[in-house]
Simulated scan of single mutants.
Amino acid sequence: MTRSNEVRVELPVLDEASLPAPLGPTGRTLRSFPVPKPLKSHGPARIIALCNQKGGVGKTTTSINLGASLAEYGRRVLAVDFDPQGALSAGLGAQTHDVTTIYDLLLTRTKDVSEAIQHTSTPGLDIIPANIDLSAAEVHLVNEVAREQILASVLRKVSDDYDVILIDCQPSLGILTVNALTASHGVLIPLECEYFALRGVALLIETIDKVRERLNPAIQLDGILATMYDSRTLHSREVLERVVDAFGTNVLETVISRTVKFPDASVSATPITQFAPEHAAAEAYRQLARELITRGAVA
């Protein structure tokens, strides 16, 4: 028995260019930001505070690796360790004992800022270190006139030498953090993709609004950076979705995923861009640097 009236349907050949662009973890079109052009001149620096009153959300990791990535793109970067725990200093291999630290600069106006600046293993990335002495600064600053503006006066002296200054804040909203916000042009909020980290963001943004109203009218939110993201867990995906729903385009497109490479790089006291330059985490921080430059947060 033979078949008759067979219909042959030819499926169209799909052109990759006609396919919709893939979506990233934030639910927006996944795009790659262009490599920035070299700068013809340097300074004055744009000062960015990396701030979140919750600890363990990736502030120091971001300060180290964002600074190294920006330096790779020819930017002169100064990282300021503003946390008494000194994790940023340790992560960049800086000396913290028997040297001038940020504590000395805050309390002794006659100190030369250049004495405190140390070069790191990454060309173009310098650091002002901190140690446990900084924990006493809040007590000493209580009776100071214009105590909220002391860090601003310190950084003003070296601002022309750099393109960006990154301040790694301690996990609190005390006088040191207010000093950092008063000195800054922008705020970058690293946010762990975890429910309890999400709860404190509204309080932090409220603090930024108060600083803008009373101390620093020019400060703005440069972005919320999702960190420690794990695409395998529903919890991470739901938290990131809620953050995007609440803050919209203030959430950066770049997302930093969780990986064991970060603690390994910390132990070696080098940025991940040097420790594992081909790793996805290193490329994520390069992408973050390019996104901030594209947004105008960095020159």
Results as ranks from 00 to 15, higher is better:
residue 100 T to Q: 01
residue 130 A to T: 02
residue 27 G to H: 11
residue 1 M to C: 07
residue 142 V to A: 13
residue 133 D to G: 00
residue 231 S to W: 07
residue 37 K to D: 13
residue 97 H to Y: 12
residue 239 V to Y: 05
residue 37 K to C: 01
residue 115 E to M: 04
residue 187 V to G: 07
residue 51 C to H: 01
residue 239 V to H: 08
residue 161 D to P: 04
residue 235 H to C: 10
residue 293 I to L: 05
residue 212 R to G: 12
residue 36 P to S: 04
residue 175 I to L: 14
residue 296 G to Y: 09
residue 209 D to P: 00
residue 40 K to T: 15
residue 164 V to P: 02
residue 199 R to F: 11
residue 207 T to F: 01
residue 64 I to C: 09
residue 186 G to M: 07
residue 256 I to K: 06
residue 154 V to M: 07
residue 39 L to T: 12
residue 83 D to K: 02
residue 166 L to G: 06
residue 201 V to R: 02
residue 142 V to Q: 10
residue 120 T to D: 06
residue 242 R to I: 09
residue 259 T to N: 14
residue 38 P to K: 08
residue 106 L to Q: 03
residue 237 R to M: 10
residue 178 V to A: 10
residue 76 R to Y: 04
residue 251 V to C: 13
residue 236 S to M: 09
residue 128 I to E: 01
residue 237 R to F: 08
residue 274 Q to S: 14
residue 120 T to L: 06
residue 25 P to T: 09
residue 67 G to T: 04
residue 240 L to T: 11
residue 194 E to V: 12
residue 246 A to E: 13
residue 123 P to Y: 02
residue 103 Y to V: 00
residue 175 I to N: 01
residue 239 V to P: 08
residue 120 T to I: 07
residue 223 G to F: 09
residue 226 A to K: 05
residue 112 D to K: 15
residue 86 G to T: 03
residue 118 Q to P: 12
residue 264 D to P: 01
residue 103 Y to C: 02
residue 265 A to Y: 11
residue 95 Q to F: 09
residue 238 E to I: 14
residue 234 L to W: 00
residue 298 V to F: 01
residue 193 C to V: 10
residue 63 S to E: 04
residue 196 F to R: 12
residue 43 G to Y: 00
residue 254 T to S: 15
residue 44 P to Y: 02
residue 187 V to R: 07
residue 181 L to A: 10
residue 94 A to Q: 03
residue 215 L to E: 10
residue 25 P to K: 06
residue 144 E to N: 03
residue 92 L to Y: 04
residue 137 A to Y: 05
